[in-house]
Amino acid sequence: MSRKVRADIHLDAIVHNYRLARAQAPGASAVAVVKANAYGHGAVPVARALAAEADAFGVACIEEALELRAAGLAQPVVLLEGFFDADELPVIARQGFWPAVHSEHQLSWLEQADLPAAIPVWLKVDTGMHRLGFDPEAVPAVVERLRACAAVSEVLLMTHFACSDEPEKGMTEHQLARISTLVEALETGASMSNSAAVMAWPAAHYQWLRPGIMLYGATPFEHADPVAEGLQAAMTLSSEIIAVREVPAGESVGYGATFSSEHPVRVGTVAMGYGDGYSRHARTGTPVLVDGQRTRLVGRVSMDMLTVDLTDLPHAGVGSRVELWGRQLPVSEVARWCDTIPYTLLTCLTPRVPRSYE
């Protein structure tokens, strides 16, 4: 391999982070969320690393679940968006998948289904996110229908928090109160804790946690959090310097001539760009590490390359290793410079970047 772009996936870190999630609620089970190719880390290798630990896996759709089964993973798999067609239901029953049910049409399909085995259902309650789910007022009647349905073996309530990473907004308390009232009245189990709630909302833990971004070592919070301090980065994205230029004062670097300096600048060109999934929105000043020393991105990111400031790194040159994020540089910090969140940086990494598993 000549182009030195790579993503090193630290599977030991993912196992550590899963255990950290479980430790926040020792009495609860935890769904390891591996949707979207395990947030860009590789669903099958990640699931295999967690096979001895995970109580269940979480994916968005049946195609992602079948990939895990084909790889030999035997744990229950929660279909977080449920099923998109009635024809999926026999497969779900045979494979031991646990679907979310969020809409009347799904409920009707279940009631009409003749399945080889009854399946557990995770009933989605819309407590304020307003994407998917039944209104809380409708839930008692829906639960009654599901409990009377021959295709259903068990009903668990689930919801998703809109602002669990922003406690100052008060939204989580509102959502938690709405679903807790239903759980108590209907005597069901519940799952409502995404990563932020796992880390900071113990009242929301209930029977099933759903850690996602925290498995991959990134914090969902903009503020400091004691649990986040224990996370370990699961991916190190790196490349190398492929050229060095001495740029005179007043000259610009990159597309749009967005960067120029009043002083001469030594600029290194790195084999990494938005064609690899590194964000084009990364601004001048975005931190990078060159041979383990911190410096900054200068100019615009292009499809295959970006440029970094080597002025204060006289020993850096062609072949120097560049860490774009990883164990020494949190992806959450890079995300702030890109005006985005770590989820997008990790999931947008393209297949052109080879993954190496440790």
Rank of each mutant, 00 (worst) to 15 (best):
V267E: 02
Y255K: 10
Y274C: 02
Q328S: 08
D312Q: 13
V318G: 03
S195D: 05
V34I: 14
T311K: 08
H10S: 11
V267W: 06
A56K: 09
R245Q: 13
G268A: 04
T159P: 01
G256T: 10
A228Q: 03
A150S: 11
P342Q: 08
P330E: 14
A25E: 11
G317V: 13
V270R: 02
S261R: 09
I241H: 08
E173A: 14
L346W: 07
T295L: 04
P26N: 12
A43Y: 04
I62A: 12
A224P: 00
P140Q: 15
L146C: 01
R48S: 05
P248C: 00
S332H: 05
G326P: 01
R296I: 14
A316I: 05
D85W: 13
L349I: 15
A30H: 05
H160A: 04
M303Y: 00
R19W: 06
A13D: 02
A38I: 12
A21L: 11
I9D: 00
A148H: 05
H102W: 14
A190W: 03
V31R: 11
M214I: 13
F83W: 02
K4H: 09
L215Q: 06
R294M: 07
A151R: 06
T127F: 06
G285R: 08
A7Y: 00
P90Y: 13
L215V: 07
G326N: 05
L182E: 05
R19C: 02
S2W: 04
T311M: 07
G319Q: 05
G319M: 03
Q293A: 07
E67M: 07
L107Y: 00
L306C: 06
Y206Q: 11
A47D: 00
R355E: 01
P26D: 09
P226Y: 14
D339R: 14
V253F: 06
L11Y: 08
M305K: 12
Q207V: 07
D276W: 14
R296V: 15
T311D: 03
Q232S: 09
Y274S: 04
H174Q: 03
A233V: 06
W109I: 08
A316L: 03
S238P: 08
V227E: 00
V227M: 11
R94D: 08
E222V: 15
E67L: 12
W122T: 10
Y216D: 07
T236E: 09
L310P: 01
A71V: 11
A49P: 01
S164M: 02
A138T: 14
A118I: 11
G40Q: 13
G128H: 11
A13L: 05
L66M: 14
E111Q: 14
Y357C: 11
A150T: 11
K124A: 07
Q175V: 09
T258S: 12
A271N: 03
A197I: 07
E137R: 15
I213M: 03
S238N: 09
A49G: 01
G299A: 06
S332G: 06
H263K: 14
S261V: 12
S108R: 15
G256E: 09
G273T: 08
L310R: 12
T340A: 04
A38D: 02
L107T: 07
Y206L: 10
N17W: 11
L297V: 06
A282E: 02
Q175K: 10
T159F: 10
L107N: 04
D135N: 13
S279I: 01
I92V: 13
H281V: 00
P90T: 11
Q112W: 03
A118R: 12
L237Y: 08
A148D: 05
V318N: 00
R294Y: 04
A234N: 07
I213K: 05
S238Y: 08
Y216V: 14
